[in-house]
Design a protein around this nucleic acid. Sequence first.
DNA 1: CTTGGTGCAAACATTTTGCAGCACA
DNA 2: TGTGCTGCAAAATGTTTGCACCAAG
Lengths: 161, 161
Amino acid sequence: MSPGSKQPLPSRDEPPAAEDLEIIEPLCSVFRRKLKSEGLKYTPERAHILDSVIRFDGIFEVERLIEELRKGPLRVSKATVYRTIRLLQEAGIIQRVLFDQEQSHYQLVYGSKPSDLLIRVDTRQIIPIDVPELVAIRAALCERLGLEAKGHRFQVFAIGR
Amino acid sequence: MSPGSKQPLPSRDEPPAAEDLEIIEPLCSVFRRKLKSEGLKYTPERAHILDSVIRFDGIFEVERLIEELRKGPLRVSKATVYRTIRLLQEAGIIQRVLFDQEQSHYQLVYGSKPSDLLIRVDTRQIIPIDVPELVAIRAALCERLGLEAKGHRFQVFAIGR
DNA sequence: CTTGGTGCAAACATTTTGCAGCACA
DNA sequence: TGTGCTGCAAAATGTTTGCACCAAG
């Protein structure tokens, strides 16, 4: 059910790898800026949630996020998780990704990282992919219809060979 | 909320257009064959639901489908609608399509009609599009990963200009 | 004090299920 | 007479909301 079928997350105690630092710092700042700009606070609960989201470093379901949070020392309620997820979306840090017949999944969006996905239907593994051609394709399509493309979603379903 | 924001459906009383006949007949047969193959029955309720689905000829939400059904003389319960939708999916007649923050939508799939979509986020109109290049793109992607593409989903979000 | 944040439980919306009765072979 | 089908209402699921209390400026 979950992406990658429950592979262990990097532990909270390990020092983050160098490439993670590049990610964690800006994201954290983005979130704080967003909160500050609306007179909201960067609380321990919100920090904890963002931290977990980052450690997923990919796609997660709320249920699994809550499960992870429960392992930490700080108890965070479901309500707060959902409220924070909304804030993270508004801040452009995560975005919703939908698959069939399941609960919502969310995906970290670092700046303009690719949001195209390859889903292995046999293993349920989800692999982010980058398909730069899509930008031209969608622009051409919209051009023809007198519209302006604002985004897209591309998911490929595949099986091992 | 609904695709195309509640444009009227073709009435049940109008004779179907020629191109609709080409669609209705095979779909009906496909469904009957599927049912028969499992020892299930083609009941008036199921026929009525398939009929309404066909008249939508595109994308619909369950709520709207139920609303349409209520206008007919035959009362069909929500439970039966959901049960029939599952059968129609199994028969490959419709498929689920998900958008953000809404209830499930379903889409007629006549054989191999395109399932790529352009969604006008300003008017919420949904326009089916055909992007043949995607087949090659997804094949190339999977080739590189040693996988086999089995399908894809492509949705473009756009606004008027 | 005032503002915002939290947890809890209740509310909600959508979809699924259990069950009693119905219809047809 | 058994099998499947239906409607209804209850249950289940995922998400949101109302509320009382807490915390920081």
